[in-house]
């Protein structure tokens, strides 16, 4: 996937930039959408995405996960940029798609609600500098231009929610890429939050 560059009229689209706006929950930085991957707590989909960049360096992944803060996680990630997996730029969209699916099934009620609240509108990540994941405002402030990869993945996910192709019970399988690892262990099927919690007290059952 290499998304083409598109132009959006701001007035016609749903945008999100910061996590505290009306649609801020669409951001990977948004708090309150915790993940549980390989039985490890991951604070947000941004942290998960950044950790996926360094599958052969568990200590870097640990530093990223332990930040519990997406901004700090990005800083750690930038520090180790040269250790990124070599195929990162060709697989990063696949990984982001998977991160969003995981965010959805493990936070289904809240995240599906915000996705569906965008109705049928185009979703655009408003960014002042990232024209790959988002789109950048032009001089007249009425237009956004960029690949808007994140917005497009979110729209695709929204359509799958509407069609019930993906729901709370869906098991999310890993993307078909080699060495998809967290702390040296393969990341396999991801299940919803209930799966991990429902029987926690049943040791004496």
């Amino acid at each position: 996937m290499k998304p083409s560059i598109r132009t959006y009229q701001i007035k016609d689209v749903v945008t999100f930039a910061k996590t505290n706006g009306e649609f801020g929950a669409l951001s990977n930085m948004a708090a309150g959408f915790n993940l549980f991957i390989n039985e490890v707590n991951i604070q947000s989909s941004e942290i998960l995405y950044q950790a996926c960049r360094f599958p052969l360096f568990p200590h870097i992944q640990e530093e990223i996960v332990r930040t519990q803060n997406p901004m700090d996680a990005k800083k750690v990630s930038r520090k180790y940029m040269q250790y990124s997996r070599q195929d990162w730029y060709s697989i990063k969209f696949k990984i982001m798609k998977w991160c969003l699916e995981v965010k959805l099934v493990q936070n289904f009620d809240n995240f599906s609600q915000i996705l569906l609240a965008t109705e049928n509108k185009v979703i655009v990540e408003y960014s002042t500098k990232d024209a790959v994941w988002g789109a950048i405002p032009q001089d007249d402030k009425t237009m956004l231009v960029g690949q808007n990869a994140l917005g497009r993945l979110l729209m695709e996910l929204r359509e799958r929610v509407k069609a019930n192709v993906i729901n709370k019970s869906t098991i999310i399988f890993p993307p078909n890429i080699p060495a998809f690892l967290l702390f040296g262990c393969p990341i396999e099927e991801v299940r919803n939050d209930d799966y991990f919690i429902v029987d926690l007290d049943e040791i004496y059952a």
Partner: peptide, 21 residues
């Protein structure tokens, strides 16, 4: 450490991550 991860996750899910922190 294994059981701790489950219990932290449970508190986040039953309440929220601010409480856990």
């Amino acid at each position: 450490t294994w059981g701790f991860e489950f219990q932290k996750y449970r508190i986040q899910k039953e309440f929220n991550d601010k409480v856990l922190k």
